[in-house]
Nucleic acid binder design. Structure first.
Length: 176
DNA sequence: GTTCTAGAAC
DNA sequence: GTTCTAGAAC
């Protein structure tokens, strides 16, 4: 089995589940990129945002609501982002629920950073609105995604730019 | 997605 | 000489 199916395996493992109902499963990200980093997965087998149709709107809404509720319970005074990666590496649709501190030893590369702080990160509410309005979720093209991941490193709070990841990581601790 | 590491960048 | 990133992994 390839690593691409790792999420599907995690979601089925009761030891890793922090929430489950008949529609969805929530697990902790194995390599959290912030203090709080959950993944919300539908039980229905859906690979990517491109496979979504209008009748998935309610599913996306409950994924959002449950993700937000679990996150709020865990850390009330920290702001939370909810969204999807435009081009995920792992199979099975997954909603990232992540605190905006980005203070984590697992956050190492420019790709990691830009996947959460540029339009590569598709806001959950925007995805839901897209789907309701047009029946599909708008996603940047493959080449746009590749460019987004190479965006110069910029602090998400004060827009200051940095030459490399260690300098950026040192800087964002000041915003904690 | 991560690990590992060669060689670029400093 | 050390730090940092980018690309292979069968």
């Amino acid at each position: 089995m390839s690593w691409k199916f790792g999420l599907l395996a995690s979601a089925k493992n009761p030891d890793l589940q922090i929430f489950t109902n008949d529609q969805i499963t929530v697990v902790k990200d194995m390599y959290p990129k912030a203090e709080l980093h959950y993944l919300v997965l539908p039980k229905e087998r859906i690979d990517t945002l491109k496979n979504l149709q209008k009748d998935h709107v309610n599913l996306l809404k409950s994924m959002h609501e449950i993700g937000l509720e679990l996150a709020s319970k865990k850390c009330q005074n920290r702001s939370i982002k909810l969204g999807y990666h435009a081009m995920p590496s792992m199979q099975q649709l997954h909603l990232h629920v992540i605190s905006e501190d980005f203070d984590s030893v697992c956050l190492k590369t420019a790709k990691h950073w830009n996947s959460f702080t540029t339009p590569f990160f598709i806001d959950s509410l925007r995805a839901i609105k897209d789907l309701e309005a047009t029946g599909r979720v708008m996603v940047p093209s493959t080449s746009e995604c590749q460019q987004l991941l190479k965006t110069k490193l910029k602090c998400h709070k004060c827009d200051e730019c940095f030459k490399n990841m260690p300098k950026l990581k040192m800087h964002i601790k000041q915003h904690l």
